[in-house]
Design a protein around this nucleic acid. Structure first.
Length: 566
DNA sequence: TCCTGGTTGGTGTT
DNA sequence: AACACCAACCAGGA
């Protein structure tokens, strides 16, 4: 009980289920809650956009307030991580440090640095696993030292481990009364949470997702009032284009540890215990956090998990290097309203539904643009409030059929997929106001609207809103062939070399020529429908499911594929 | 070596 | 709304 301890918050920005902090308090006469804001270190591990920064700062503010309510405070210090800790150890006469043990490479590296420093300075260490349900090392050990590569196998391995640990008890004012947390050095303004302005950030004033533990717990309680909804939750049945999230929206809070995944898991168990027919993994809510656990487990044991090259579980594919097409996707200017609306919501709000992520990820990679999943992953990393090293990379490999998922023939149609659950296009009208006056019949494929309809809607396609950047029908068929080829070559040859030529259209042209001979001529044909296959066609009417496209097969002369990716 | 099953496709038929 | 079919992937298990 005589230690003087620094608790280093990293993720785990909470006072519920925080076993490292609790153990620090139980073994100390004084505990200093500290957050080291090492911007260089953070920038090296991930590209964090302004929305995520705001979320982090709000979460720190929230933590600071909670600590103040309990008679303590949060010290936020900027600078190189280990230098800051070394300085604080001397300044406060520290004998012990505590922190959560995490599995991301940069966290592992930081922990090694902290352990080295502790050895050098003779400090005791407390470190607990609190960001995942299990210590993923235990999962891997139980599976003979390898990460399970399927979810089913993963669940099977977990069945040997029993239930995850119960959450640690909440940290209360009483805990802080027993354990002095000195505030005497300097006033409250010293070492406080920086503002956006101080970090040089500009961000929209509207806050849809306020960061912090108290907001996380409030959101949790709101959802848990609907016990039936929680018990019967089935992920594939949730709606990607509802105007309010159709899922719990807890992912940002879980990713930063404002909400403990073990708290969430055990709260779900208690609801399931009272329910006769609750849903099950993989689609249940518990199944969702087990997916999270799955990706953490595989990521922790896979070298170069966020890259294709040097990643042993990742299919090696010669993706196109097309910066212009990538920028169109990123900025929501593909000409496909469903894709562009999703990317707009992502940039503006920092959260999109899981299935919406599928739609845009498939479009960028194996569906349409044939651009590397790594590029998409980086964009998500920048914009998503719930950006997460393991889950983000894992899902991008999944969607691009590079790992985990292999049914590459299942390609999302950028016109019909969204129309299924939002035939009137309310979601599109909200995020792409330029299209808001289009009739529902055409809003998912406005380039098919007759000129007078476009004029009536006050939006001429090609002028006020872009033409579709590719013919989905054409490029998706080409990509399917490319994928087939990759898979047949992968077995007996070395990995495909990545295309580095400076003209991606040229690459596409070459590949296409090799496979199928010269393409057709270059007119018209920016359509979801196909001349090659009249049975596959896009309905242009939301309310007439089977209605044929306004393009007749004869009218569509498909352009050469390579020229489509502009 | 073969067989099974896989969180969430799309089309067409009933 | 439910189902067969498409074309035929991979990890894991027998």
């Amino acid at each position: 009980m005589t230690h003087r301890t620094i608790h280093l918050f990293n993720k785990g920005l909470r006072l519920h289920d925080n076993p490292s902090l609790l153990a620090a308090m139980e073994s100390s006469a004084a505990v200093y809650p500290v957050y080291v804001l090492d911007r260089q270190l953070m920038a090296a591990s991930a590209h964090i956009g302004p929305l995520r920064w705001r979320f982090i700062l709000q979460s720190l503010e929230d933590l600071h307030s909670s600590l103040q309510e309990r008679g303590s405070r949060l010290h936020v210090l900027q600078g190189p991580y280990l230098d800051v800790v070394r300085h604080l150890v001397a300044r406060w006469g520290i004998t012990q440090i505590s922190f959560d043990s995490e599995v991301e490479p940069h966290c592992v590296q930081l922990e090694a640095g902290l352990r080295g420093l502790a050895g050098e300075l003779g400090l005791s260490i407390i470190s607990c696993v609190a960001h995942t349900l299990y210590d993923v090392k235990r999962i891997i050990k139980t599976n003979d030292g390898k990460p399970p590569l399927t979810y089913k196998k993963f669940l099977h391995v977990l069945s040997f481990l029993g239930e995850p640990d119960k959450p640690a008890r909440d940290i209360t004012t009483a805990d802080f009364q027993k354990c002095l947390t000195p505030r005497q050095d300097g006033d409250d303004e010293k070492d406080r949470v920086p503002t956006f302005e101080e970090l040089g950030l500009e961000v929209e004033p509207e806050v849809l997702w306020p960061g912090g533990e108290s907001h996380a717990l409030k959101r949790l309680e709101q959802h848990f009032q609907s016990q039936g909804w929680v018990a019967n939750f089935s992920k594939p049945r949730t709606i990607p284009n509802s105007l309010l999230p159709s899922t719990t929206g807890l992912s940002p809070y879980l990713s930063l540890g404002c909400l403990s995944v073990r708290t969430f898991y055990h709260r779900l168990s208690s609801i399931y215990a009272q329910s006769k027919n609750h849903s099950l993994p993989p689609v249940s809510l518990q199944g969702q956090v087990l997916w999270r656990e799955f990706f953490y487990t595989v990521a922790s044991a896979t070298p170069n998990f966020t890259k294709m090259e040097g990643n042993p579980i990742c299919l090696q594919i010669g993706w196109y290097d097309n910066q212009e097409a990538l920028q169109k996707w990123k900025r929501g200017q593909t000409g496909f309203p469903w894709i562009d609306a999703i990317m707009t919501q992502l940039r503006q709000e920092g959260w999109i539904h899981h299935l919406a992520r599928h739609a845009v990820a498939c479009f960028l990679t194996r569906g349409d643009l044939w651009i590397s999943w790594e590029e998409g992953m980086k964009v998500f990393e920048e914009y998503l409030l719930d950006a997460d090293y393991s889950i983000n990379a894992g899902n991008w490999m999944w969607l691009s059929a590079s790992a985990f998922f292999h049914h590459y023939t299942r390609i999302f149609c950028p016109v019909r997929f969204g129309r299924r659950t939002d035939p009137e296009g309310q979601y599109l009208r909200k995020y792409l106001p330029v299209l808001k006056n289009f009739p529902s019949k055409y809003i998912y494929e406005p380039w098919n609207a007759p000129e007078e309809v476009q004029l009536q809607a006050g939006c001429v396609i090609g002028k006020d809103y872009p033409l579709p950047m590719v013919s989905h029908q054409e490029v998706s068929e080409r990509n399917l062939e490319l994928m087939k080829q990759v898979r047949s070559e992968q077995g007996n040859t070395a990995e495909l070399t990545r295309d580095v030529a400076d003209d991606p259209m040229e690459i596409g042209a070459k590949r296409h020529a090799q496979e199928e001979g010269p393409g057709a001529d270059e007119s018209a044909g920016r359509s979801c429908s196909s001349a090659a296959s009249s049975r596959k066609r896009c309905s242009s009417g939301g309310e007439h499911g089977g209605r044929a496209c306004s393009w007749t097969p004869e009218a569509v002369r498909l352009p050469e594929i390579s020229s489509e990716v502009m």
